[in-house]
């Protein structure tokens, strides 16, 4: 391969992959927590993506990059031989307050009154696999099918995980509001 081909390839890669940097960085921040680790993971992600760019066949660049990022983070945790946090059993019962406890409209009002910093903290406190589902859906705005591709899961598992993640989030959200008010 000539140097011209290489720079042409690098240019194509840059045009296709760099516009998604904020998305990749956002997921990295939630998966790695520490900012320096997140930046390293993003850089490693782009290196790997470039290396495999020739085998990339689409359709969508963004989920492809996010999947690579996710693998980078996973192997980093493996290298440190630590689990990101206790993986929580998908089927362990969540005990959120019953939906009917508050007046529906009053509860919805309560949920709406949250600022970005508080929401970030609540999402960051979710167990890893639930955190990942919520970030991919509600922040990266991926479809269920794309999340399934990124996380290597069946769509059905994505759906039930999201439902549980939001039940946990809602419980924590309300508990925090309850303390404040």
């Amino acid at each position: 391969m000539s140097a011209d081909d290489d720079s042409e390839r690098a240019r194509r890669f840059r045009d296709a992959a760099l516009p998604h940097l904020d998305d990749v960085y956002t997921l990295a921040r939630y998966l790695m927590r520490d900012q320096a680790d997140a930046e390293d993971a993003v850089q490693e992600c782009y290196l790997r993506a470039l290396r495999h760019f020739d085998s990339y066949r689409g359709p969508a660049m963004r989920p492809w990059l996010l999947a690579i990022l996710r693998n980078v983070c996973k192997s980093e945790f493996t290298r440190r031989s630590e689990r990101p946090a206790a993986e929580c059993n998908d089927n362990a019962p969540v005990e959120p307050p019953a939906w009917q406890e508050a007046q529906p409209s009053a509860e919805a009002e309560l949920l709406r009154r949250h600022d970005a910093a508080a929401i970030r903290r609540l999402v960051a406190a979710l167990p890893p696999q639930f955190r990942e589902a919520v970030v991919l859906r509600d922040i990266n705005d991926l479809s269920y099918r794309q999340i399934a591709e990124v996380a290597g899961l069946p769509v059905g598992t994505v759906m039930s995980r999201l439902a549980r993640a939001r039940a946990m989030l809602r419980a924590a959200w309300i508990a925090e509001q309850g303390l404040k008010s």
Binding site: D22, D23, Y25, T26, R29, W99, P104, S105, E107, A108, E109, L111, R112, R113, H114, D115, A116, I119, R120, V123, D138, I139, R166, L169, R170, W173
Partner: peptide
Amino acid sequence: ASLQAMRSAMAGAGLME
């Protein structure tokens, strides 16, 4: 109602880094 409220709070909070 709660899910919609949470979703719109998250969408409105500008959580993308």
